[in-house]
């Protein structure tokens, strides 16, 4: 047991960066998940989770590169959210939010 070494430890080898730490960070691989910031997980129009592409896009994208991120989410002024694809078809017939019947106007789009 060489208890007296404890002070000297590491100093000689270190390049001077954080010389007093026993553990130093070299690399951190941080993982996070993103999801749409929505109140309801499911698009009320196509009944698919908003994190997945809408039904129509799933059908079309079967052949070309799957998992394209093109099927984004749209928020109305009423704060209800849907797939942008689903909503743009919906407003052609009825310019109201399918959930609250308020007149539909886009508050923001997912990106």
């Amino acid at each position: 047991m060489s208890g007296e070494d404890c002070d000297a430890f590491d100093r000689g080898d270190n390049d001077g960066q954080k010389p007093d730490k026993m553990f130093t960070l070299k690399k951190w691989n941080a993982v996070a998940m993103w999801s749409w910031d929505v109140e309801c997980d499911t698009c009320a129009i196509c009944r698919v989770q908003v994190m997945d592409a809408c039904l129509r896009c799933q059908g079309e994208s079967k052949k070309d590169s799957y998992g394209k991120q093109d099927c984004v989410v749209v928020w109305g002024e009423c704060n209800h959210s849907f797939h942008f694809c689903c909503m743009s078809l919906w407003v052609k017939q009825n310019n109201r939010c399918p959930l609250c019947q308020q007149e539909w106007s886009i508050q923001r789009m997912g990106k």
């Binding site: 960070l25 070299k26 993982v31 998940m33 993103w34 990106k111």
Partner: peptide, 17 residues
């Protein structure tokens, strides 16, 4: 990006010390 929220998954993240 906009309209997205982030959640950190620290049980998956890792590193070298």
């Amino acid at each position: 990006h906009s309209g997205r929220k982030l959640q950190w998954y620290h049980h998956m993240s890792n590193g070298t010390i």
